[in-house]
Design a protein around this nucleic acid. Sequence first.
DNA 1: CGAGGTGTTGACGATGCTCAAGGGGAGTGG
DNA 2: CCACTCCCCTTGAGCATCGTCAACACCTCG
Lengths: 201, 201
Amino acid sequence: VLEGFACSSKTSGEGKRQILNFHVPGDFPDLLSLNLDVLDSTLTTISPCRIGFVQHEAIQQISERHPKIARALWRSTLIDAAVFREWVVNVGVRPAYSRIAHLLCEVLVRLRAVGLAQNFSCEFPISQTEIAAATGLSSVHVNRSLQELRANRLIKLDRTGLRALDWEGLQAAGDFDPAYLHLRNRGEPAQYGREQSQARH
Amino acid sequence: VLEGFACSSKTSGEGKRQILNFHVPGDFPDLLSLNLDVLDSTLTTISPCRIGFVQHEAIQQISERHPKIARALWRSTLIDAAVFREWVVNVGVRPAYSRIAHLLCEVLVRLRAVGLAQNFSCEFPISQTEIAAATGLSSVHVNRSLQELRANRLIKLDRTGLRALDWEGLQAAGDFDPAYLHLRNRGEPAQYGREQSQARH
DNA sequence: CGAGGTGTTGACGATGCTCAAGGGGAGTGG
DNA sequence: CCACTCCCCTTGAGCATCGTCAACACCTCG
């Protein structure tokens, strides 16, 4: 993903869709299907995207010749797995209000890590229906919980984007600890040009 | 894990525990922490276990010298990630009854794959409290759903073990499709000695 | 202008949780 | 050998969170 938002999802036998993952610019959504014979999840765009494609064979060849690259790619899939683990926790034990706050925190931190958020605000093309599918809630309940978050002056969220009005409060509400994202720069914004090159690729 | 059952878990800020994964004999529970600086989940034994340990450095060295082994290990972590994805779906969209049925199916299939289940029955040292922690339900609701599964003559479950009385029915109840486990032998029992060596290591 | 997706609100109902209590088995200490 | 404890399973009653159904306003796009 070069530009735009995408997500992976699976739909259950009863036709309910669960979003597993959001992909923001800089992500490699399909690495997880490498080496696996059967594809078990679906990739969808959320906003208009610019996508780059890489041949599986090219990755294989490069990673066999350069073990360091192989390790880096492997590490990337391990982080994806860590995010899944956190999502299991999120969907499993947290109440709706926290669940949504947690999701907002994750998106914000990840966008900050790639320099796409300034001042705790970012673009947010994810609809309430999609938040519902990501959190295992109904869209109307998402709507009500978002209103609660707004009423508590934690966020400002509309078509123009998401802004965390009270970052500490939002983290607390979402029981959010960015450790699971395994960001090398610990979730600090990647501005000042220091970490950008590392984050962009 | 050489013998016995174990699991990984995380506990949320409110003190609720979510089990992320069950580890059965033959599993490599800690591969996911390789290459990651911070450990973000906890490993616990469920029944008395025999455990083997491998130095991280040894794995690094071997995988740098033998790309095929590296790929196999990588593949193994990718399968772990696929299981997490399915758990997100399970916890996210399925009702309690299906959720539990799904979990039972997974354990049974994985044990069959390593030759630890005959005739759709296996050892099952996982308590109802632990099923609850794995499915994001309360233990009393697990108890009631299990009774429902028993009443529908799908399972027989007690201290002596788990038996699927109606395997097709149980799969249907749990909305279970073993594809996500990416078993090479498609979940068929590994008896007749054919696939055992592959499964044991 | 119509259509469709998104956000919003209300009313009602159900799935699943909490609290509480009790029984049984296994291990422990007297 | 018997109390005692602890864990696990079980059951009941009441309640809360969250889902479903429905309707409507708004916006964008064709």
